[in-house]
Measured scan of single mutants.
Amino acid sequence: GNIFIKNLHPDIDNKALYDTFSVFGDILSSKIATDENGKSKGFGFVHFEEEGAAKEAIDALNGMLLNGQEIYVAP
């Protein structure tokens, strides 16, 4: 299952995104959108192997604080 994450703190990188979401299941890919200079655009995507893991991550993390910013997590 794919999920979309927005309002990410600029310091959150691909590894931090992966580490945050990997507790919910096996991740096939995770990516933070960046500009041409490699600076985070504040949103990203995680693709879980299983749909159930994606739903669990959405339920658990939507509205949670990550590096002091409330993140939005949705399908």
Rank of each mutant, 00 (worst) to 15 (best):
H47Y: 02
A60T: 14
L65H: 10
M64N: 08
Y18Q: 08
G52D: 13
A16C: 15
D26T: 08
I32Y: 01
G25L: 01
I71S: 03
Q69D: 13
E50D: 13
A60C: 12
I5S: 02
N62G: 12
Y18N: 14
F24C: 04
S29H: 00
I3C: 08
N67S: 12
D19S: 15
N67F: 08
K39P: 04
K6N: 02
E49T: 13
Q69N: 15
K6I: 01
I12A: 04
E70R: 12
G42F: 07
G42I: 02
L28C: 05
D13S: 07
F21H: 03
N7Q: 09
A57L: 07
I27Y: 01
D59H: 10
E56K: 08
S30E: 04
N67V: 15
K39L: 09
L17P: 01
A16H: 05
E70A: 12
D26E: 12
G63L: 05
T20Y: 04
I58C: 14
K39A: 07
P75A: 13
N62P: 04
N62A: 15
F21D: 01
K55T: 13
N62S: 14
L28A: 05
A60N: 11
N14P: 07
I3K: 00
G38I: 13
K6M: 01
D11V: 10
L66H: 05
Q69G: 13
N37C: 11
N14S: 10
L17I: 08
V23L: 14
A16L: 10
A57D: 01
K6T: 01
G44V: 00
T20R: 04
G63R: 15
V73F: 03
P75S: 14
L8Q: 01
L61T: 07
A33V: 12
F24L: 07
D13A: 05
F24M: 14
L65R: 11
F21R: 02
K55M: 11
G42C: 15
I58A: 10
E50Q: 14
E70N: 12
I3G: 00
G44Q: 00
L65S: 08
A54V: 06
S30I: 03
K39F: 15
L8Y: 01
E49H: 10
S40G: 07
M64T: 07
Y72I: 08
N2G: 01
S30W: 06
A33H: 05
A54F: 11
Q69E: 15
I27T: 03
Y18C: 07
F43A: 03
I58M: 12
T34K: 05
K15G: 07
K15V: 06
N37Q: 11
A53N: 09
G68D: 13
E36N: 15
D11T: 08
A57T: 10
K15N: 05
I27H: 00
E50T: 08
F43D: 00
T34M: 15
N37R: 12
D11K: 06
L65G: 07
H47K: 03
A74S: 08
A60P: 01
N37D: 13
T34S: 13
A53P: 11
A16R: 04
G63C: 08
L8I: 14
I12M: 05
A54Y: 07
K31Q: 03
K41V: 06
E36H: 14
Y72G: 05
Y18G: 05
I27L: 05
E50R: 13
M64E: 07
S40I: 04
E49N: 15
P75L: 13
G52C: 12
I32S: 04
L65W: 08
A33G: 08
E36P: 12
D26F: 14
L66C: 13
N7K: 14
N2S: 02
I58V: 14
K31R: 06
F4V: 01
F45C: 02
D35N: 13
N7D: 05
N62D: 12
L66I: 15
G63H: 09
H9G: 10
G68S: 14
F21I: 11
F48V: 02
K31M: 04
V46T: 06
K39Q: 11
N2T: 00
S22N: 13
K55P: 06
D13L: 05
V46L: 04
G25Y: 00
I12K: 02
K15T: 05
T34A: 13
D59R: 15
E51Q: 10
Y18T: 04
F21V: 09
D59G: 10
S30F: 03
E49G: 13
I3P: 00
K15Y: 06
A33P: 10
G63A: 09
D59I: 08
K31V: 04
S22R: 10
G1W: 03
D26Q: 15
N37S: 12
S40R: 06
A16G: 07
N67D: 13
S30V: 05
F45S: 01
A60F: 07
E70D: 12
A57H: 00
F43W: 02
G68F: 08
D11S: 11
L66G: 05
I71A: 09
G42Y: 08
D19K: 12
I71V: 14
A54T: 06
H9A: 09
K39I: 11
E56S: 07
D26G: 11
N62T: 14
H9P: 14
K31G: 01
K15S: 06
Q69A: 15
A54H: 05
E70S: 14
S22A: 09
L28F: 07
V23G: 06
S29P: 01
H47A: 03
E56Q: 10
F48T: 00
N14R: 03
T34D: 09
K6Y: 02
A53D: 13
G68L: 12
I32T: 07
D26N: 12
L8S: 02
D59K: 09
I5A: 07
L28R: 08
E36K: 14
K15Q: 06
N14K: 04
D19H: 12
H47N: 03
N14A: 10
K15E: 03
A54R: 06
M64K: 07
E50P: 09
E49P: 06
L66F: 13
A54P: 04
E36I: 14
L65M: 12
A57Y: 01
S30L: 07
N2D: 02
L8P: 00
V23D: 05
N62V: 08
D13V: 05
I3A: 04
V73L: 14
F4M: 00
I71H: 02
F24V: 04
E51K: 10
E70I: 13
F21N: 03
F48R: 00
D35S: 15
M64F: 09
I32C: 15
L28G: 04
E70Q: 12
D26L: 07
I71G: 00
L65Q: 11
L65K: 08
E36V: 14
G25S: 06
N62R: 14
D59F: 09
Q69V: 12
N7H: 11
S22T: 14
G42W: 04
E51S: 07
A33C: 15
G63E: 11
K41L: 07
K41P: 02
A54N: 03
I12D: 01
N2E: 00
S29D: 00
K39N: 12
G42N: 15
V46M: 03
D19P: 02
K15L: 06
E51H: 07
V23T: 09
P10V: 15
S40C: 06
S30G: 08
D11C: 12
S40P: 10
E50S: 12
S29T: 02
L61A: 06
I32P: 01
E56A: 09
E70L: 11
K41W: 03
N14F: 03
E70Y: 11
Y72D: 03
L65V: 13
G63S: 11
K31D: 00
I32R: 05
E36D: 13
Y18D: 07
L17W: 01
I58T: 12
N14V: 08
K41R: 14
D26R: 07
H47Q: 07
G44D: 00
G63Y: 05
H47F: 02
A53S: 13
T20P: 02
K6G: 03
Y18S: 09
S30P: 04
E36R: 15
K15D: 03
Y72H: 06
G25P: 00
I5C: 07
K31T: 04
D35L: 13
T20H: 05
N14C: 06
E70F: 07
I12H: 03
L8W: 01
N62I: 07
I32L: 12
N37L: 13
K39G: 13
S22G: 12
E70T: 15
E51L: 11
F43V: 03
D11H: 15
N2K: 02
Y72R: 08
T20K: 05
K55W: 13
F48L: 07
N7I: 03
I58G: 06
F48A: 00
Q69C: 15
I71P: 03
S30T: 05
A60G: 08
K41D: 04
F21L: 14
P75V: 12
E56D: 14
P75Q: 15
E56H: 10
K31N: 03
A54I: 04
A74G: 15
G44R: 00
A53E: 10
E56I: 07
A74C: 15
A60I: 15
L28I: 04
I3Y: 01
V73P: 01
